[in-house]
Each structure stands twice: as structure tokens, then as C-alpha cells.
Simulated assay, not measured.
Amino acid sequence: MTRFGYTLMTEQSGPRELVDYAVKAEAAGFDFLVSSDHYSPWLTTQGHSPYAWSVLGAVAYATTNIGLMTYVTCPTMRYHPAVVAQKAATLELLSEGRFTLGVGSGENLNEHVVGEGWPAVHARQDMLVEALEIIRELHSGDLVTYDGQYFRVDSARIWDCPDDGVPIGVAVSGDSSIDGFADLAEHMIAVEPDADLVAKWNSVHPLGGSESGESRKIGQIPISWDPDREAAVARAHEQFRWFGGGWAVNADLPTPAGFAAASQFVRPEDVAESIASGPDLDELAESVRPYLEAGFTDIAVVQVGDEQQDRFVSEVAEPLLEKLRAL
């Protein structure tokens, strides 16, 4: 059965509000929570960007059963992979086994802030391979020394480490990334409902095609619920028009001003065509169908904007989940 998640969108809500939404999302019946991990919002109109790991620590304490996940963190530039390994182990213990470490090769928007530049895509992929190797070794609980092309680790050990380590999901975009990462992560993350990616992952991953579903295929889709459809479309346009740029663009732009410039000619009607908006729950639920048809096992929804977020998780999420599970 497909699992449905709720997105803690750090770019559009403050830290205390995110924890409150997480509690209400669990009560509404979502199967898991995913959190973005950004240093900046995509657009200044979103207006937030608290530290995801602090938020997730609070969420782990405030919730009981719901799964937790980063979607995604970049363990190569803002964070050294040894530090990510420690953070993930701690969060897995705090949540009593509910955390999945979702990782990717990052976006310029967030990673350039440490002043180390922005590598070419092939270098970012190679850096992520080394990072995953380091995280895996450290999650064994053993003393680790690692000397790679991009990273060094000197006599490091995770002292508070889960017995079975931390499950990892990795963002992929094509055959080369799947070939490089499939042996280093349990789960696949993708930003588009691409059936070919799922098929490729299943063909090369040790657990990819297992009937037990141990290897999750995790996607995410924005929706904009509002009792007023025009208000829903306007909010989606104001805060999510960057979404249509595609990952090749979104990964490389360095600032919210850059995203504003790149999306300045996107019209509200363009956004309405790509993001289901308004009060019709059947329409909102139907928008996830491409992910279902592509074979994704887990789909997280993003309710766009903070304006209707509390009402969404308190009143709308439960009936929407009923419709999603009936698809």
C-alpha cells in the first residue's frame, strides 16, 4: 500500500509552527513527515528558513509514531559527512527508530553560503558517493579513518549510534546516479514521477524489486488547498512559481533574487496547470496519480504557503488522505 506523507516546508513556516503542524499531521493520519533542509527560501515571499535538524529534533520529541525524514539534506558542503552521520544517528535515537536520512547532491542556493563555490554536477555526484561511504562506515559504530579525493575523516566514532545504523534515501535523476548510489542507500528519492527511474532502481538495487517493499521509492508533490480557488492559485504563483524551472535550473541558481528573476514571466495560469489548486479534494488527490502509476511507494504532499497551513492539517488533511488512499 502506498504511504502518504506531509512536508514540513521550512522555507514557508517558522520553527514553532512547523512542530505544531507535525503534531497535527500525525493526528490526521499521515504515514510520515519529510522536512526540507535549506539555508534560504526559494523566494523571499516565502520568508522563512529555520534549521531543519533542530526542528526535527523537536518533532521527534513531540510525536509518537509517524516516520521522519530529511527531504533532502546535502552532506557535502554546508555539512561535512561526519557531522551528518552524527546528527542522523542522534535523530534516529531520539525518534526511537523513525528517522530516514534523505540525502542529495544539493542546490547552489543553500551550499554556496559557506564560501566554497559551487562544483560541477559530476563533482557533486562524486562528493556524494564519498559522503555516503563515510556515513555508512560511521554508522557501524567503529573507529573510522577515511582519506578520499574530497573528504578526510581522522579517527572518528559515533558514540551514540543505533545498533542497525540509519536507513538512507538518496535523490537520483538518471541511470548514472542510480548506478553510483544504489549500493549505498536503501531507498530512492526522485523529484519527478519517472517510471523509468523506478524500473532502473528496481533492476540494480538489492532490495529494489522485492515484494516486501523494503526499498522505498519516495516522491513529493505540491498542492495549494484553499476554499477560494483564485486565492489558492495566487498563493501558488506567489510562493511556488520557481517549481516549474526544473532541477537543472533549480540546482544552480544562487539566491532567492535569482529565482525571482528566472520566474518573473511565469503566469498564475501556468502555475495552475502544474500545481493542483483550490477546494476540490478529488482534484488535489488526483494530482498524485502520476507518481502512483510510476511505481512510487511513498508520496509526500506539500501544502503551499503558511496562510492556510493550520486549517489544512487540522481540517482538510484527513478527508484528503481518504481520497488519496482510495485512488
Rank of each mutant, 00 (worst) to 15 (best):
G141E: 10
N108G: 09
E192W: 12
G209V: 05
Y146N: 10
P206A: 01
A120F: 13
R157T: 13
A120P: 14
S140F: 07
G180Q: 14
D196T: 05
W159T: 13
D164K: 03
V129G: 08
R136M: 00
D175C: 02
R98I: 09
M127I: 09
H122P: 07
V113K: 02
M188S: 05
G115P: 03
P193D: 08
E211P: 07
Y150W: 14
V113P: 06
G148L: 07
D175Y: 00
S105P: 09
S203Q: 06
G208P: 05
G208S: 03
G148Q: 10
S173Y: 04
E211S: 13
G104S: 06
V121I: 14
C161D: 00
V172N: 02
H205P: 07
G106M: 07
V129P: 04
H205L: 02
H187M: 09
P206C: 04
R98C: 10
E192P: 00
A185D: 04
V198H: 09
G97W: 09
R152W: 09
P162W: 00
Q149Y: 13
H139E: 02
I178P: 12
E214D: 14
D179C: 06
G169R: 00
L197S: 04
E211L: 12
D147P: 07
D194E: 03
W118Q: 12
A199N: 05
E137V: 04
S155E: 15
A156E: 11
H187N: 12
P162F: 00
S140G: 15
